[in-house]
Write a protein that binds this DNA or RNA. Structure first.
Lengths: 245, 245
DNA sequence: GACATTTAAATGTCTGACAAATGAAAATTG
DNA sequence: CAATTTTCATTTGTCAGACATTTAAATGTC
């Protein structure tokens, strides 16, 4: 592991060197890195610089640190939980900062969910189905705020994804679904909208109960179209207000 | 933005405070943060601590820094490129550290790709098709190493995903496909394996050329099964050697 | 043997300093 | 006056040294 001491951003270089070692498997899970003082000696930099490098790695959950004797920095086993969190932050920012259209985000989300449908139809447990039915019931309650409706929507779709029984898929989709929430929260749902969505959700749950993946896919496609038209209606309304007022 | 100065990990708290401000939109893209000295004063910590916090944010591409007068830390517009990179690192580690089975990873990958098939059939350009054909041709060349074969495979599937014309999908899938590569590289492909895969790739390209998304999905499913059986054969072989030798 | 104390090692934090980069402003020059 | 050069203040990058705090092993004590 070598760095170029002439070019700036030594801490970034050191972080990269260590990160590469972890990704390549030279440093294995739970292995202890040398102490900050030792790393400083090895890389011929100050301890402050080493610490900046370690903080970069900690921000990516690549290492964890422990104080005290026999403490230090350890290679962290990246859990699905931690990975979720990072993916959601990244995806949310990506969507909010890059003027990704509602349509594009929506299309991506439902395309990914459609991918789960056949697997979920095969493998969903009674638990997954119960969660979906419970969320559908909540969505039908009077006086539910738009935010709460959206949150329930996320929970419903989360159950659908988890029903596929593939943690990698769950991880991938968590980002897409959760990152959409800020965009979805723009929408105000009329009672009519809600009952339409609830009907489609019910259709999905029914299809999954009958283990009919193809039907679930078809309903998901209708739900996608429905959501997209809702979104474009909201955007059109905003544009109209802007020109008029 | 406040922190608790008694509990340790001040830099993590400061990083969180700033990150929250960015995610919430209180700090907008290209906005300049206060200088390190000013932040140190605001949070009542030393400059070193502030710097550790800023490095954490830089590791997540949330800020970029610039030296010199009128330099400083700026809220970074998270590009798709940067997001790709982070997702690939995260996904790769997640797969390598969590004993995700080859089957599970494979299933997730092909499920996601199948989601792109109909969109790609609609929107693919001649360019995408040309890339696919070129990669298929490369895959048929004599004396191609297994690594090169895998790399070409990734390029082929990348073209398929990009053909869907949805940057969010491309971003999501880049992680899944690239993170699989270390697992795929375990496999040694016989000439017979290769010609089978090439035939399926050709089938996909043909279907997309004919804008037949359903057919593309069907071939992808066969490719998934083919890859999974290849993987399990390799694993079985390894297990046998372990017991015997 | 069980419990209290000491101790060494490690991270967390602070202070103060200097180097290097950088763009604005001032000074110089044609 | 315009173009160029120089100066300069600001800001990040890096360093050295110090002290506080945490932690678990080692030691001492009953």
């Amino acid at each position: 592991m070598k760095i170029d001491p002439t070019s700036p951003d030594l801490s970034a270089q050191i972080a990269k060197a260590i990160r590469d070692a972890i990704v390549a498997g030279d440093l294995i899970v739970d292995e202890r890195l040398p102490s900050e003082a030792e790393l400083a000696e090895q890389f011929e930099v100050s301890r402050a610089t080493v610490r900046e490098a370690l903080k970069r790695l900690a921000a990516q959950s690549l290492i964890r640190t422990q104080r005290g004797a026999f403490g230090g920095a350890f290679v962290n086993r990246l859990s699905f939980e931690e990975a979720y969190g990072q993916q959601i932050t990244t995806s949310t920012l990506l969507l909010s900062m890059n003027e990704v259209s509602f349509d594009t985000a929506c299309e991506a989300r439902y395309a990914l969910e459609r991918a789960c449908a056949p697997l979920c139809a095969q493998r969903r447990t009674a638990d997954h189905l119960a969660t979906m039915r419970a969320e559908i019931h909540r969505q039908g309650q009077q006086g539910l705020s738009d935010e709460a409706f959206c949150a329930s929507d996320v929970a419903f779709h989360r159950a659908l994804v988890d029903g596929a029984g593939n943690p990698v898929l769950s991880y991938q989709l968590a980002g897409a679904v959760e990152a959409m929430q800020p965009l979805m929260n723009m929408i105000t749902f009329t009672a009519r909208n809600r009952s339409e969505i609830i009907a489609l959700h019910t259709g999905i749950a029914d299809a999954l109960e009958a283990r009919d993946g193809a039907e679930a896919e078809r309903v998901l496609e209708r739900l996608c179209a429905c959501t997209q038209s809702l979104g474009s209606a909201v955007l059109a309304e905003r544009a109209r207000r802007k020109t008029d007022g």
